[in-house]
């Protein structure tokens, strides 16, 4: 038994020596720590959170990071109630939320919210007014916009979504969204839904866009990372990780990790604009 343990020790130390140079400073801070970090909320964040969790959990066996979605509203509420350690939001928490829960906000990336359609759709450019009419249900067939003769299927998110809040305010100027719109629970689900439905239109975090969906230019500006960065594309927002009062322990380490060069690299890889 002892021998076996020793062998494992030797093998794993050799292994970690070999791998160690790949990890930077911030990850090493987790050394010797144990416990759980519970994360919930914004669904745009999930890809980055999962990757960060994977990096940490692969290296440190005594740390567990759980990642759940639910939307920005849920993230803010749950961190405020102390149900999770980090509550993510794809919108800035409202002043009353900050005050009520004594939230500390950490904005670690910039993201945009863009309109997307299925790549098979010929309509890939809209004016803001057309967009409003589509989402309110006034325009209900693609043929009106020069596309195929088929009803438009509008996809939207629920009230807890930060992506919805940003889109509704900045793209729809707070105009109605039709009650016929189909609901999806997250950014990931929005992308999947649009990719599978040739007649769909929806809105999704720019970081989540890939070749399975086609971005729609709004008043001539395509929602891309570059256009968000340059400020040309206006529907932008920060990605926040919020904690209840000042973070400490593992939570602090995790926040630090997000702002470290590796954390910021993950954000970049997942399609967001790092803040540093």
């Amino acid at each position: 038994m002892k021998k076996a343990l020793f062998q494992i020790f030797v093998i794993s130390s050799i292994f970690s020596l070999l791998v160690a140079p790949c990890f930077g400073e911030a990850l090493q801070d987790f050394e010797g720590q144990e416990g759980t970090i519970k994360i919930a909320g914004g669904t745009a964040h999930i890809s980055v959170m999962k990757e960060a969790a994977k990096q940490i959990m692969t290296r440190y066996k005594d740390i567990v990071v759980t990642v759940a979605g639910g939307g920005s509203g849920l993230g803010i509420k749950q961190v405020g109630e102390g149900l999770v350690d980090i509550g993510n939001s794809g919108r800035k928490p409202k002043p009353e939320e900050i005050e009520k829960y004594k939230l500390k906000m950490f904005k670690w990336a910039i993201d945009g919210v863009g309109v997307v359609v299925n790549p098979a759709n010929k309509v890939q450019s809209l004016t803001k007014n057309q967009l409003k009419d589509i989402f309110s249900g006034k325009i209900d067939n693609w043929s009106v916009l020069g596309g195929v003769k088929h009803a438009i299927t509008v996809y939207t998110r629920d009230e807890a979504s930060g992506t919805r809040a940003v889109f509704w305010k900045k793209a729809l100027d707070k105009e109605n969204i039709s009650t016929k719109a189909l609901f999806v629970p997250s950014n990931g689900a929005m992308k999947t839904a649009i990719a599978n439905d040739p007649y769909a239109i929806g809105y999704v975090s720019v970081g989540h866009m890939d070749e399975t969906v086609a971005p729609v230019a709004l008043d001539g500006v395509t929602p891309t990372l570059d256009n968000v960065k340059s400020g040309q594309y206006k529907i932008a927002r920060g990605l926040y990780s919020n904690t209840k009062s000042d973070p400490s322990g593992l939570t602090l380490l995790f926040i630090n990790y997000l702002f470290s060069s590796e954390g910021q690299k993950i954000a970049l890889e997942k399609g967001f604009i790092p803040v540093k």
Binding site: G70, G71, G73, L74, K77, E81, D158, E159, A160, F183, P185
Partner: peptide, 11 residues
């Protein structure tokens, strides 16, 4: 779906 919302809210 609505479990996502605020616990105290009427929603």
């Amino acid at each position: 779906l609505v479990k996502a919302a605020d616990f105290d809210s009427l929603e």
